[in-house]
Write a protein that binds this DNA or RNA. Structure first.
Lengths: 159, 159
DNA sequence: TATTGTTATACTCTATAACTATA
DNA sequence: TATAGTTATAGAGTATAACAATA
């Protein structure tokens, strides 16, 4: 019990710091600039989500994967479409739905961006022993899942 | 090299997910409600920063520790002062500076909040082997430091 | 002249509500 | 009537710029 508290006293500030570096930090802005892109970060996240999926996705599906709400995705899809980075295709199976798919330019832009971020992370973790990198991946996966699960439970309680 | 890429392909989405849970998630709102507080999250962060420091801090120092900019702190300090949770004391060593210190009510509120969050994290990590919890703390500390360091280096390059 | 803090303003990210079109 | 998406609007969080007071 005593030990838990002291672990948490250390862990919480770290998580806060990390969260700040990733979300508020200029890390992604740097990567966007280095990739020669002038996009808002959530727009880039839409592209990255499509890239990770490896197939066209509906607006609602993108929203779910980004853990945001539909209109937010619509807004950035609008911008991406104007720039010619994605295309809206009506889903042949359901005329209400739209499938969002990257254009060749969108795919190229996404690859440039991901390349920059990966290179940057590789550099940041260059000195890490292989074992630590693997452990971090394992623990972070579990932490993200456990925290997400607990958060859902909390939301359900309130409901 | 191949291995780095595949690690990162896994790590980056995890970090994004984690960052989302912590920053956008309703975790802290839940904790505030459970502690019986109606404060904005950054205001609570100001209180937590003071609590962690264990002593009154200047506005600028709070901003540095929160990794935000001065006016942002001023704004939330204004709100906290109105609610009687902190006090502004002119620094005897420098008439320009103000030392921010929690009132007894502020201290009590902060303790309630931290207690809720720690209890919640303890629950989320309850099933974790002690070894994993310690490893997570160690690796997260290093990750946060390395990423912060790299980010500063990037900022300097741009400058 | 440099620094600490404040005020005023604006921008980014995300949410909720109201609506349209299809099912 | 329910669902997919869009449009319009609002709010939280943070930044930049202009300023005041003190050093």
């Amino acid at each position: 019990m005593e030990r838990d508290t002291s672990l948490l006293a250390d862990l919480l500030p770290r998580l806060t710091q990390l969260s700040g570096v990733l979300s508020r930090g200029r890390l992604f802005e740097h990567a966007l600039a280095a990739a020669g892109l002038s996009l808002e970060r959530p727009a880039m996240t839409v592209l990255a989500t499509l890239h990770l999926a490896g197939q066209p996705l509906r607006v609602g599906e993108i929203a779910t994967r980004m853990q945001v709400v539909g209109p937010h995705v619509t807004r950035h899809v609008n911008g991406l479409e104007k720039r010619g980075l994605i295309r809206r295709v009506t889903d042949p199976l359901d005329q209400r739905a739209r499938l969002i798919e990257p254009t060749p330019e969108g795919t190229a832009a996404t690859k440039r961006y991901i390349g920059v971020v990966e290179g940057w992370f590789t550099g940041a973790l260059a000195d890490w022993p292989e074992h630590d990198r693997r452990e971090l991946g394992r623990l972070l996966t579990r932490l993200a899942d456990d925290l997400s699960g607990h958060l859902s439970a909390l939301d359900d309680e309130v409901r």
